[in-house]
């Protein structure tokens, strides 16, 4: 989910860049040197994951996966998402350099909030609690991102209110899909590699 260049106003772009820089700094600080390869390779995996289109009725939607990024990486979601966005900007011209900050925040902030809100549930011993937490975390990632995009548009100009609302409504089906995906993915990882999620035993 990105906002293209040339739409947002200067105060929004600057605030986004400052907030993103702060988040990335915290994320890097919390990542030890030995962990950098893991975060790097996982960012690559998320990048590939976000290229996957899943069918939805007559159309298809591409995955965002920021809820899962948050679950697996915590604060490191900020640098990981920044890296992915930079590659998308350079390789496909999605998003761009000036909107990098705003786009990083809109996707990474819900990821980190999801990590704190639903992380404990996902790591709990009870399978049921974990799955409910995972569904909510996946949906929350998309919901949060859509709301932040709408907010960035609205802050640029009140005329963007309708567009912003549409962005949120249009993402409701994506929320359901991402929630289900996170649920099944967590169920899978709890079975085959609980260490990845740091599940309690």
């Amino acid at each position: 989910m990105h906002i293209s260049e040339g739409i947002l106003s200067a105060p929004v772009l600057i605030s986004g860049a400052v907030a993103a820089a702060g988040g990335v700094a915290i994320g890097l600080k919390k990542t030890e040197n030995e962990k950098i390869p893991e975060v790097g390779v996982l960012s690559a995996a998320f990048f590939v994951g976000s290229l996957i289109h899943v069918p939805l009725g007559p159309t298809s939607v591409h995955l965002i996966l920021n809820g899962l990024v948050g679950l697996l990486l915590g604060w490191a979601a900020f640098p990981a998402i920044l890296v992915g966005l930079v590659f998308q900007a350079i390789l496909f011209q999605f998003g761009g350099l000036t909107t990098l900050g705003v786009n990083t925040v809109t996707m990474a902030l819900p990821a980190v909030i999801g990590y704190y809100l639903f992380g404990p549930a996902v790591r709990s011993e009870s399978e049921k609690t974990a799955l409910v937490g995972a569904f909510l975390c996946g949906s929350f990632g998309v919901l949060g991102a859509a709301i932040l995009v709408a907010f960035a548009l609205f802050w640029t100009g009140q005329s963007f209110l309708e567009v912003g609302k549409m962005v949120v409504y249009a993402h409701v089906p994506v929320m359901v899909i991402e929630g289900l995906l996170a649920l099944f993915c967590v169920a899978f990882l709890r079975k085959v590699k609980p260490e990845l999620l740091e599940v309690k035993r």
């Binding site: 899943v54 995955l63 169920a187 899978f188 990882l189 990845l196």
Partner: peptide, 21 residues
């Protein structure tokens, strides 16, 4: 379908994490 994709993505994470180590 969604379950299959979720397992696919889970496998990618798993392999990536092990590869990075």
């Amino acid at each position: 379908t969604y379950k299959s994709y979720a397992y696919l993505i889970g496998t990618l994470f798993l392999k990536s994490s092990e590869r990075s180590k």
